[in-house]
Amino acid sequence: MSGLLALLDDVAAIAKLAAAQVDDIAAHAAKATGKSAGVVVDDAAVTPKYVTGIPAARELPMVAKIAAGSVVSKLVILLPALLLLQAFAPWVIAPLLILGGAYLCFEGAEKIWHALFGHSEEGHERAQTLNAARLEEQRVKGAIKTDFILSAEIMTIALSTIETDSLLTRAAALAAVAILFTVIVYGAVALLVKVDDIGLHLSQNGPLGVIRAFGRGLVVAMPTVLKVISAVGTVAMLWVGGSIVVHSLHTLHVSLPHDVIGAAVAWIAGDGASGAIPWLITAFLDAVLGFVLGSVLIPVVSLLLKPISVLFPEK
């Protein structure tokens, strides 16, 4: 009897330890999720463009393929690579964050300049000549490539916020962040790309006039909604990218951008101010810095990519 009681005590102790471990993982994952949320807005805003012009029956299968590629990128490639870097070369994390943040700034600034001045539609015309299967394959590959870059940023930011000596807890928290963000992003994308179809179905088959009117409203509103989401994603890209660069430089003891933004916030909002106003001012200044940095990088990136395009022309 005493042996059975001792066994039960051991089982209870193991259960408590496991529960504490799960709580620890959940706490680290929640903290990492909050820090990485800004990049997710952009990820969700960027992806719907890849299914534009695709037959409705292929939209959800395409989203599923992109989501599967995202999971592989996060769990199979990025998670072990980042854990190895943190274990053997932790000094690489901050420069990686700066590179990722600079890329987000570049992407955001390029979108704004394109919206202002545009460019030729040669790529669109070329896409028209592709058959449906080839076009879908290229779209999926392009989306997975873009997702990989954003996923690397999400995972790196998440890793930088997880403060634990346990490799298992760190890996489990990163895996939780990866799965959670994939579900959120591609669940939202799946909903966005099908809302117009849902609206069309309601407008044609709704049992009540108000429901049919609501369906027509969804169909009419979706192009505007997608444009707004794209704009929000661009702003989020600049804000997140600028913030990452500023804070990563600060950790490397290059504190001028951080100090200038801090002084500007104190001057505008007043010393000791707290709440939403200082945060909004900081986010705005981070976005402005991101736009300036991204604009500077546009010709630099174009110059660097030119020899690559010569060596590896698109077919």
Rank of each mutant, 00 (worst) to 15 (best):
L130T: 01
M62T: 14
G187E: 08
G53P: 13
R139K: 14
E163H: 11
S166W: 03
I179M: 09
G69R: 12
G123M: 13
M62H: 07
Y103E: 04
R58Q: 12
V76F: 14
V63R: 00
E125I: 12
V72D: 08
A171P: 05
V140S: 14
I93G: 00
R139G: 09
F88C: 03
A67C: 08
V72N: 06
I98G: 07
V92D: 04
V76E: 09
W113I: 01
A109P: 04
W113V: 04
A94S: 11
A68C: 05
E136Q: 08
E137M: 07
E137H: 05
A89F: 08
E110N: 15
E163Y: 04
L82P: 13
L96G: 15
A56V: 09
L83R: 08
P61G: 06
E137V: 01
I66L: 14
S151F: 09
P95Q: 08
V189Y: 12
F117Y: 12
G123I: 07
S151W: 07
F117Q: 07
A102Q: 06
G123R: 10
V92E: 02
K74C: 07
L97E: 08
D165R: 10
S73I: 11
G108T: 04
T52L: 13
V177P: 11
T156W: 10
Q138I: 10
S73K: 05
A133W: 07
R126C: 05
V140N: 10
W91E: 07
G100P: 03
A143F: 11
G101D: 06
I157Y: 04
E137L: 15
R170W: 03
A152M: 14
L159I: 10
Q86S: 14
P61C: 08
L84E: 13
A89W: 07
S70D: 10
G108Q: 09
A67E: 01
V189A: 14
L78K: 05
L116E: 05
H114P: 03
L75W: 03
M62G: 11
T156D: 03
L79N: 14
V92Y: 01
K141P: 00
L97M: 15
L97Y: 00
H119I: 03
T164V: 06
L78D: 06
S166V: 02
L84W: 10
A190T: 13
L83Q: 15
A115H: 15
I154W: 00
L150N: 10
A109S: 12
S160M: 02
H119C: 01
R58I: 06
L96S: 09
E107H: 04
R170F: 03
L83S: 02
G69M: 15
G187H: 12
L60H: 12
V177Y: 01
L79F: 08
K141M: 07
A190F: 05
A94Q: 15
F117M: 04
A158K: 05
L167I: 05
L168E: 09
N131F: 03
R58S: 08
T182C: 14
L168G: 11
C105Q: 08
A64D: 05
S73L: 13
F148G: 11
E59N: 06
I66C: 15
I98D: 02
A133N: 12
V183R: 11
S166T: 04
T161N: 01
L167V: 05
A102K: 02
L167S: 13
V63W: 02
A94K: 02
A89R: 02
M62D: 13
